[in-house]
Design a protein around this nucleic acid. Structure first.
Length: 506
RNA sequence: GCGCCUCUAGCUCAACGGCAGAGCAACGGACUCUUAAUCCGCAGGUUCCGGGUUCAAAUCCCGGGGGGCGCACCA
């Protein structure tokens, strides 16, 4: 082919890959020249691999069923024996062995077989049989190319290992690494289970704005964008919370939304700038109903996606068996630091506790925020099995109702598992004046440079003035739940196409 | 943002100052019951990029890039 033509530096890097691709392209073109369409528009399948196994896995060796099936999938391996070849056909449900005998194949099938490569999509027609070794196979008589793989697949045994490529080209990861398929199967089953459970409890699925003039509903830094038509700056939402509560005000007593939130913050094994959040709001409920609902949702997801309640992540065993303990944050912290803390404590006192436990803090933080930091730094990491931590300072809960018996504490919980927050929920603050007051406090924090202060949302306050019934709300980190159920440690392993720097262009 | 690790054939990995190699995939050939098929043969490289040290650099040093992990902030 091309000789080493010096100076042609741009095209030399991919020379060997080009050669492999050219080989495959050539085979495709040979078939086309023989009148075989290498990209047919459709194919009728009569069985998937799983269906075939279900029907025939109990057969003895060397049996012919007489059943003619048409199957389709990707060819992932071939074992040639001269005029007899075995191959593996992989479809969405699993894989099945193909038996291809010269004496059985049609002329066209032989031609296709002679020009196929690992990775090609093919359709086959043949009799379901078992081989002499007893493996269920299709004794192929007709073989169609459905689409050519012009690039070679990763090593069939070792798969694809480089994380960079696995994330950037997830399609290769999925087709080459069964482990990756397993993880995402669990993800999709988890999402389906959460949705099914909520719908069965009469929650209505809604969709609220992602483009928001003000990014509210959580304490986080947003991504900024711009509307050309309106000539205004917009934010990608950090949470749907405020809009969902407005729907409750509007009369939808049970609503949920499961969709992407965006937070312009650090990326690590448990944080992704775009992640899937589930928020559910239920009129006439309180914080305890939120915990009950959370427990039902997580257990149903675990049961439905994995059939198990016991998991192991990084060597740590986690047991989801209910009921999960509900502990007061201040009680627990008292055990850990040896003294009773309270949001009304002088800030100097709480700072001292932080210092003695190596918890860094900023001068503008009040006692409530400091207590929350202690929770985050010294309590949360000790959690293994699920536990509901209840009673967070109002100072760090601008949208939560204050407790009946302590106005500085919110009726709020977090579900902690394996050192991570999985769910945050509370009795919703529905007193307009108090909400207005909380927003004022946040505005003050913003004025002092807090980039994550909650912006005052007057449309939300106005909505509250029409009356929000007593309401229980929860927010679930769906990706983290999937991480637990799939037993993986990196959030990127449960996100199909995690955000990456753009690939360098030559 | 700071620290540590990593980048070699399409894929998985060796070589760690002295000729850049193996397995799989590819290519040519043998083989009608294999399943990581086997056997014979043959090819395949800007060792992430740029500079430096050296008789000699994939290897050591400096700078840059991609990725991972840890620390700090958020879920």
């Amino acid at each position: 082919m091309t000789d080493e033509s010096a100076g042609d530096d741009g095209e030399q890097a991919a020379r060997t890959l080009d050669a492999l691709s050219a080989e495959r392209r050539k085979k495709r073109d040979v078939l086309a020249d023989q009148g075989i369409d290498p990209y047919p528009s459709r194919f009728d399948r009569t069985a998937t691999a799983a269906e075939l196994h279900q029907r025939h896995d109990d057969l003895e060796a060397d049996v012919r069923t007489g059943e003619i099936v048409r199957m389709a999938g990707r060819l992932t391996s071939i074992r040639g024996h001269g005029r007899l070849s075995f191959a593996t056909l992989q479809d969405v449900s699993g894989s099945v062995q193909l038996l291809m005998q010269d004496s059985v194949l049609s002329e066209q099938a032989k031609l296709v077989l002679a020009h196929f490569d690992l990775g090609d999509w093919v359709g086959v027609e043949g009799e379901a049989i078992t081989s002499r070794r007893g493996e269920l196979s299709v004794d192929v008589r007709e073989l169609w190319l459905l689409s050519k793989a012009l690039r070679p697949l990763p090593d069939k045994w070792h798969g694809l290992a480089e994380t960079d490529t696995r994330y950037r080209q997830r399609e290769i990861d999925l087709l080459a690494n069964p482990e990756s398929r397993r993880v995402f199967d669990i993800r999709f089953r988890t999402i389906a289970a959460l949705r099914r459970q909520l719908v069965s409890e009469d929650f209505i699925e809604v969709d609220t704005p992602i483009l928001q003039p003000q990014a509210g509903g959580a304490l986080a830094r947003p991504f900024k964008t711009h509307s050309n038509a309106l000539d205004i700056d917009l934010n990608l939402r950090i949470a749907p919370e405020l809009y969902l509560k407005r729907l409750v005000i509007g009369g939808y007593e049970r609503v949920f939304e499961m969709a992407r939130n965006f937070r312009n913050e650090g990326i690590d094994t448990r944080h992704s700038p775009e992640y899937t959040g589930l928020e559910a709001y239920r009129a006439f409920g309180d914080v305890n109903d939120g915990m009950d609902l959370t427990e039902r949702l997580v257990l149903e997801a675990a049961r439905s996606a994995t059939g198990r309640l016991n998991f192991t992540i990084g060597g740590r065993a986690i047991d989801l068996t209910p009921p999960w303990p509900r502990r007061q944050l201040l009680d627990w912290l008292e055990e850990l630091v040896g003294r009773r803390l309270h949001p009304t404590d002088p800030v100097e006192d709480v700072r001292t506790v932080c210092e003695s436990h190596g918890v860094p803090f900023l001068p503008e933080w009040g006692s409530g925020k400091l207590i929350f930091e202690l929770y985050d730094s010294i309590l949360l990491p000790t959690v293994v099995d699920p536990v509901f931590v209840c009673g967070f300072p109002v100072e760090v809960s601008p949208l939560a109702r204050h407790s009946e018996d302590d106005p500085t504490l919110a009726d709020r919980f977090e579900l902690a598992i394996d050192g991570k927050e999985f769910t945050n929920g509370y009795s919703e603050l529905n007193i307009p004046e108090e909400q207005q007051e909380r927003f004022r406090g946040e505005a003050e924090a913003a004025a002092h440079g807090d980039l994550e202060a909650h912006p005052a949302d007057q449309a939300f306050v106005r909505a509250l003035e029409y009356g929000l019934p007593p309401t229980s709300g929860i927010g679930v980190g769906v990706d983290r739940l999937v991480m637990l159920l799939a037993e993986v440690e990196a959030i990127r392993d449960v996100i199909l196409f995690p955000i990456m720097r753009p690939e360098a262009t030559g």
